[in-house]
Design a protein around this nucleic acid. Structure first.
Lengths: 313, 313
DNA sequence: ACTTCCATGTAGGCAGCCTACAGAGTTACT
DNA sequence: AGTAACTCTGTAGGCTGCCTACATGGAAGT
């Protein structure tokens, strides 16, 4: 029983096809196929069965793939134990992040890693909530968010650390009638039109909650992802929008007002595969992100949202 | 971090020299040395340091060697989980046994494995109590004994199953004056001479206990290991001896009498390395041995020792 | 001093993993 | 229906890496 074969099965279980495993591990599909056959021959069991134009794991293959999680975790822990004895954590840590959270956190992370042996490799993507979990396959840490709780959908057996809780405020053009109220409630929003996000994206759940609270539908005029673009649309008077408080820069054309009465808050969380999280460098970065998240929350705790300065002086 | 290297370090930790590891794994010392250097290069740490004419593990090497126990156990458990799903356990199980316990148990084990896929590979050795633990390096199961408790000396972190508790009786030639008593106590033995075992062998602790109870030394005339030889000496009138009840065959020249007042009993135990014990075939054999041990104890429960038939009808 | 038992170095054989390329099967699109 | 795109698989060949065989150097015991 070779560990390499166990890890191969785990990759197959999680990526679905041999071709995906091959590209993820920088090999040809042929190599993966041959290794799989070797594993089957040595174990004396069928590990995969053909289905449609691909294949899927047999019950035995699935059993071993699940076991591989445990094996991988134990080995990673051993490695971490050694590294922690050898000195400071180091190496490359790959981070995948949703842009808005990355904008709030990562610029503060870089200086804290200045005199460590850790190097970062950052990528960003804006995907539906359930798609963040998949990104942990290709990144050590994924900065995701959730509006329904502290664990993003699909991140069941991943390591999951809440970095911050960020209010989602209502953005409106300067001079909008609602700007006179320091805090908005759902009833204030009846009849308004919105710059919304594509279906499946977390922010939409807030609008749905507002509709459910008032019993009246909201008009969604566009479905945009990029917050900078959304802001410009709001400033142009195309509608209201929900924007995360920490990263919506003061902007002469728009202002923010908090929304109460529904859950208008997102949890910014770092998620990781347990075996990646076993690396000390990865854990160190996660620790720093949690610190930074707390700092950011503290800095906004007594500040009003947006460009209007302090509301409760 | 390769599992092969971890297991190599464990072998070094446990066997002491590269030469011993090499012979145990059927390789040349050169191969082992090269693999060790490869491990050091990949990990970037010194794992061994020269000492005297051999070497010893550094602190880091020892850390990894200990971790290897955990890794090996987890992998063995995965393998066992797969095998248990695939059907009946099978494969070769190597047993090392002390001769007397093997004589009592193993003939009953063979028929029970008749229609299984398990094959046995049995060896025997008669060593001091503390030496049994070392034999678990080379055998899946070691049948050992202990007079001081249920765990033989040195078997601290081994799997340890008590198979039977066997009285050690006093063997004497037919017609010996002590034969008139159905049960002996230490005071009966004052002034007697004995066929003893070499120092360090467990049986000696019983004679020491008798001496301690009576305050009078016993004369030890020879120091023999082989029980068949001991029996013949007893029959020849050379002295008394302690013999295990289950395997001392009825013999026209000798008879047995139980000894009370001191702990004259040995625990027959199966010991194994946890990673070996994870194999289902190994566990199955251990289960059967425990059954057999219980049977043997039950069969002797209402029978008097030796050739004299039932004493308490 | 000689033997013995360590570990280690070098050269070469051999197995195993990988790539490159080709082929067969299935699905989806035009 | 026909084609394109995707899947997995097979074969031939190169390359890396592990091992053996043999030789060397050092430490301990006789």
């Amino acid at each position: 029983m070779e560990v390499r074969h166990l890890l191969l099965l785990r990759e197959i279980a999680v990526r679905g096809t041999l071709a995906a495993v091959a590209t993820a591990t920088h090999r040809t599909p042929s190599a993966v196929s041959q290794q799989l056959r070797t594993a089957e021959r040595e174990l004396g069991v069928a590990l995969v069965e053909p289905v449609a134009r691909g294949l899927r794991l047999t019950a035995e293959g699935l059993l071993l793939a699940e076991s591989a999680d445990e094996v991988g975790r134990v080995i990673a822990e051993v490695e971490a134990r050694l590294q922690s004895r050898l000195g400071k954590p180091g190496g490359a840590v790959s981070i995948g992040t949703l842009p808005s959270a990355g904008e709030a956190l990562l610029p503060l992370l870089m200086p804290r890693l200045r005199d460590s042996a850790i190097t970062l490799d950052v990528r960003d993507f804006d995907v539906a909530e359930a798609a963040f979990a998949r990104e942990t396959l290709d990144h050590d840490l994924v900065i995701a968010h959730s509006l329904t709780g502290d664990v993003p959908a699909g991140a069941g057996h991943l390591v999951c650390r809440v970095l911050a809780r960020e209010p989602l405020d209502v953005a409106m053009p300067v001079g909008h009638p609602l700007a006179s109220k320091p805090v908005l409630v759902p009833d204030d929003l009846v009849g308004t039109t919105w710059i919304a996000v594509p279906a499946g994206f977390p922010f939409d759940s807030v609008l749905l909650a507002v509709e459910s609270a008032t019993g009246r539908p909201l008009e969604r005029r566009m479905r945009l992802v990029d917050n900078r673009l959304v802001e410009s649309m709001v400033a142009a008077g195309e509608g209201l929008a929900l924007l995360p408080r920490f990263t919506t820069a003061p902007n002469p054309g728009t202002m923010l007002r908090p929304l109460s009465g529904v859950n208008a808050e997102r949890a910014i969380v770092a998620i990781a595969r347990p075996d990646h999280y076993a690396r000390r460098a990865v854990r160190t970065v996660a620790d720093l992100l949690a610190e930074i998240g707390a700092d950011v929350m503290a800095r906004h705790a007594d500040l009003s949202p947006g460009v209007t300065g302090r509301l409760q002086p």
